[in-house]
């Protein structure tokens, strides 16, 4: 299961890097979105995918799911939500001001 997840995460990372490198500004934002998903999956996977046992802390328990990564992922999701929404507003404003979504045109000239 972990191997499969690792491959999936790898694919997600690849796609998001591809989106990062594209010229359209909204694709770059989608890239950040996808990257954060990949990262969250990685965080869950890295702590071993345990199934069938509740995350209960009982010293006698033979098997339990580690609750910590879940809490971490939740926090990371909330943060990603905040960053993405801010980024969307910013991209929208950029588009309005510059009237283009092409990053090549948003490069900026050397002399200013």
């Amino acid at each position: 299961m972990e191997i499969l997840m690792s491959i999936i995460i790898g694919i997600i990372f690849t796609v998001s890097v591809y989106l990062f490198l594209s010229r359209s500004i909204i694709r770059v934002v989608l890239g950040t979105l996808l990257l954060s998903h990949g990262v969250h999956l990685l965080l869950i996977t890295m702590s071993e995918l345990q199934r069938g046992a509740p995350p209960l802390l009982n010293l006698g328990a033979e098997s339990y799911t580690d609750p910590l990564p879940q809490a971490l992922v939740l926090t990371a999701i909330v943060i990603a939500f905040g960053v993405t929404s801010l980024l969307l507003v910013m991209v929208y404003r950029t588009y309005k001001e510059h009237e283009t979504d092409d990053l090549e045109e948003l490069r900026g000239s050397a002399d200013e």
Binding site: F20, V28, T32, L35, V39, L42, L87, T94, L106
Partner: peptide
């Protein structure tokens, strides 16, 4: 707006790597 976009993107990417590092 133009330059901040680059600032934000590089930092978002670095933050993603931060989570990766923490996960490892």
């Amino acid at each position: 707006l133009r330059e901040s976009f680059k600032y934000v993107i590089i930092n978002v990417f670095a933050s993603a790597l931060f989570v990766v590092a923490v996960a490892w």
